[in-house]
Computed example of a mutant assay.
Amino acid sequence: MFSSKAQLQKRTPENGTDRENFLSLLVDEYLNSSSYDAKCQVLANLANFAYDPINYRYIRDVGVLDIFLYVLKNETDRKLLHFASAGVCNLCLDPANAEYILNHMGLKPVIALLGSEHNETVANSITTLIYLFNEQTKSEINTCEINSLVQKLAQSDDKMLSNLATVFLQDICQLSN
């Protein structure tokens, strides 16, 4: 559910931690933890915060988007990639976040996730590519290689993947012709 500043203030105890500080604490925990389980849990929490537009500025300011992009570019762990791809997918609706993702070379790792064996990660990738598609990204997103891969995904038994791939093919391929 989306929040307003007034709702956040109302739900924050008088001596409680505000949203930006809380996100900053999560970033610190992720960066300083050596526990795989803790990293997964924190990354999942950060991806959930990325769902609410009221958090977008805080997420950029405290470096959450940088963590998501770092994970997409450098990690191979399926769970970490899933949470990071979900976070990027949630954030890319915002024009400032989309620009940040594109300016920080986030498109190639998102494209690479189309080959993931984890269906939800692939769904996040397709959705992110749909949201990031514009005149600037057209030549990178609407390629024969990507379109061929997405055509195969459109035949998937997984209805979520099949439907998203079909939307991609209809919207992205049609817009580019």
Score class of each variant (00 low, 15 high):
M105F: 10
S176I: 00
L175C: 07
D28R: 14
N15C: 00
Y56D: 15
R78M: 10
K79I: 14
V88A: 09
N48K: 13
E117N: 15
D94W: 00
K159E: 15
E20V: 08
G87D: 05
C89W: 12
A154L: 07
L72R: 11
D171R: 12
S162M: 11
L72D: 09
S33C: 09
Q7C: 00
C173S: 10
F2P: 00
A165H: 09
L69W: 05
L80C: 10
L113P: 04
V71M: 07
C173I: 08
R19D: 02
E75V: 01
Q41E: 14
S24W: 02
L91M: 15
V64L: 11
I67Y: 10
N15G: 04
F133T: 07
K5F: 03
N32V: 06
Y56L: 00
P53V: 09
V27S: 07
K152P: 06
I146M: 03
D28C: 06
S33K: 09
C40L: 10
G16R: 02
A98M: 07
R60D: 10
L102E: 08
T137P: 12
T143R: 10
S3Y: 13
V71E: 05
D61C: 03
L153H: 12
N142Q: 13
E135D: 15
A47I: 05
S33I: 03
L149K: 15
D18W: 01
T121N: 11
S125E: 10
N15K: 04
K5L: 11
R19Q: 11
S35I: 08
A47G: 14
N119F: 12
I101Y: 03
Y51V: 03
Y56V: 11
L46C: 08
L65C: 14
M1N: 03
N119M: 11
C144K: 14
F133H: 12
D171S: 11
D52F: 01
H118D: 15
L23Q: 12
G87M: 05
